[in-house]
Structures are given as C-alpha cells and as structure tokens.
C-alpha cells in the first residue's frame, strides 16, 4: 500500500446551480492514515463533501482541496487516485466479480497476469476467493459490499472514500460487517473518509467523527469527546437520545433553568427522593427496560433501567438524574 496522505480542504463550499447552498465554506484537515466519519441526517451535505473530495462535484470558486502536497482542486476524478465505495455499491452488471475488481487495473494498463494476481489477492482480503467468476446478480448484499470494497482498494488508492457502505444491508449483517470493516481499515492504514447517518457506525469506524447539519460542520472530534462533551444540543441529540426538562420542579430541585441528560443517566427510585414522575409506558428490551415518564406539569422524558426494575405504568417514582448538566 502506498504511503498514507493527509487531506486538506480549505474554504470549500458548494452551491447548486439553482442557488441552494449544499455546503457552507468549510475547512477540514484529515490526518494521514486516519479514518474520519462524516455523520449527519440526510441532506446535511455529507455526501456532497465526499463527492467533492473524489472530484465528482467541484467546490465553489475559492475552495481548495489538497492531497498531501498536491493541489487536486482542478484534477479530474479519473486522475485523483481515490478509491470509492458507492452507496448501493454501483457494481458493473456486465462484468463478473473478478471483472469488477480488476477494472481499475485494466484501465491502468496492468497486464493480464499481474491483474489476475492482484484480483486474487484482493478477493482473499475480503474473503471472496471462491466467487471470482460469479455474476453480480448472484451475490448477496454483504458479498456485494465486499466486492465494492475490493474494487476500490485494488487500484492502491491514495485515499479511500465510503458512502453509506453498510446502509443497504439488514441490521444483523451490518453489525458483523462493521467489525470486519473496522479491522480491514486498520490493516490497510489508509486515509479514509466514511459517510454515514448511523451514529453507532460512525463511532465504531471513525478515529474522529465530524457531525454535520444543514451544510455546516457542527463539531469534529474523537467519538468519546463528542458524546461526553457535545458542543451543541444537535450534536448531543444526534449521538444518542437526549432528554431535556426545564422550569418548575427542575429549577427548585437542581437550581438550574433546564436540565439535559441521557436516558441511562436517570436512576428510578421509590417516591420521595428526586423529581417526582409518573410511569406512562414500560418496554421490556432484554438487556434493559425502557420507561417513558412524565412530570406533574406534563414534560416527558425517557429512562433506562436494569431488567429487574419493578415499576409498572401508573406508578409514581422519583427520578434521580446523575450527571445533570446545564443546558
């Protein structure tokens, strides 16, 4: 594998021809060998940012993109040497598995024998050796994902970009492939950008996570930092459920205007100790029980409790909010 590169974006914005702003001017630096996860809801500009890095979209006037010391702003996608795994994979239906994986090498004029060797190597890496001659429509979703990955890294890209690589798969398979992908990215040691709307995926795969919203970078940092120290309510809410209570009882008990917390930060106890609340619904989820609660003034919040919690709908409990934070 080639030596990993840093990626630097300076003042990169994107405005569509109809005038809508997809991306506000943005500066971003991705370290060599790092995996950066772009996380945000659909339409937040994360895919546009990814497409700008690989050259499929150009940045507005004044934006600059650098790979290491090379300014690639004006370089066409076909000359940037980036490996891309597209959402839905975009495997060529007119070629078999080996044909797909070897296509980039064929374009580069690699001779047939070396190509075969390299394709075999790649398929071994993603554990698909046996399927080299398969047609694309004979593959399962998980197999397609791995073929797409093999095709992207076969060209020894300087940068690897993945657009929602696991979204098309069902939940169980996604868990498995997430682990495999994390391992593979560590092995490759390549600079990688991964776009996802799934916070768990972002936190598992990204060395750092960039949370985006409405064309803006909200916060950039290690997953733990983002979770423990969110810069805005949006970031806090996007990385897991965030509850918010304010006024009245909260002000008297905690001495603050409003309280934000996560459901697992609430402890439920018999009435009389903390905020009095009424259990409205109870969902048994195996490893824990999820309670939907309401204060006397109608404000609602969620709490997670151990699976042996005894409260039932209609019970009055008191909520002890542990790591109470000022909102």
């Amino acid at each position: 594998m080639t030596h990993p590169l840093t990626i630097r974006l300076d003042n990169c914005a994107k405005t569509w021809p109809d005038g809508t702003r997809a991306l506000a001017p943005l500066n971003l630096s991705i370290d060599a060998g790092e995996t950066l996860a772009l996380l945000g809801p659909s339409g937040c500009g994360k895919t546009t940012l990814l497409r700008m890095i690989c050259g499929l979209e150009s940045a507005d006037e004044g934006g600059r993109i650098r790979f290491g010391d090379d300014d690639v702003t004006q370089v066409a996608p076909e000359a940037r040497g980036v490996g891309v795994v597209f959402q839905g994979y975009a495997l060529f239906p007119n070629m078999n598995v080996a044909g797909n994986v070897g296509y980039g090498l064929k374009i580069r004029g690699v001779d047939a024998a070396s190509r075969r060797r390299r394709v075999a190597e790649m398929l071994e890496l993603v554990e698909l050796e046996a399927l080299a001659e398969r047609r694309i429509d004979q593959l399962s979703g998980g197999q397609r994902q791995r073929v797409a990955l093999a095709r992207a890294i076969a060209i020894e890209p300087r940068v690897l970009l993945l657009d929602e690589p696991l979204t098309a798969l069902d939940a169980r398979l996604r868990q498995q492939l997430r682990v495999d992908l994390a391992k593979l990215l560590k092995t490759l040691g390549i600079t990688c950008v991964i776009v996802t709307h799934d916070q768990e995926e972002a936190m598992m795969l990204g060395d750092r996570v960039a949370v985006m919203s409405a064309g803006r970078l909200e916060q950039l940092g290690a997953p733990e930092t983002l979770y423990r120290d969110p810069a805005s309510p949006f970031v806090a809410d996007f990385l897991g459920t965030l509850c918010r209570l304010e006024g009245g009882e909260v002000a008297t008990r905690h001495g603050v205007a409003a309280l934000t917390f996560r459901p697992h930060e609430v402890e439920l106890a018999p009435p009389g100790q903390g905020l009095p609340a009424r259990v409205q619904a109870r969902f048994f989820l195996g490893s824990h029980i999820r309670f939907e609660l309401a204060l006397a003034d109608g404000q609602r919040f969620t709490a997670l409790a151990a699976p042996d919690a005894i409260w039932q709908p209609g019970d009055t409990v008191s909520a002890l909010i542990e790591q109470a934070r000022v909102a």
Binding site: L56, A76, P77, E78, G81, G83, G88, F92, P93, Y103
Partner: peptide, 23 residues
C-alpha cells in the same frame, strides 16, 4: 453511479462509454 464508479477507477469518458454505457 456506475459511470461515476468507473470514473473514480480512472476510466476516461470514452472508456466509460464503451465499458459501461454501451453494455
């Protein structure tokens, strides 16, 4: 996305036409 994938893999407009679009 087929055409874009071919493009990121290095295919020129002509190669994209011949290898992806015509088939």
């Amino acid at each position: 996305h087929w055409l874009e994938a071919a493009q990121t893999l290095g295919a020129s407009p002509w190669r994209r036409f011949v290898d992806i679009e015509l088939p």
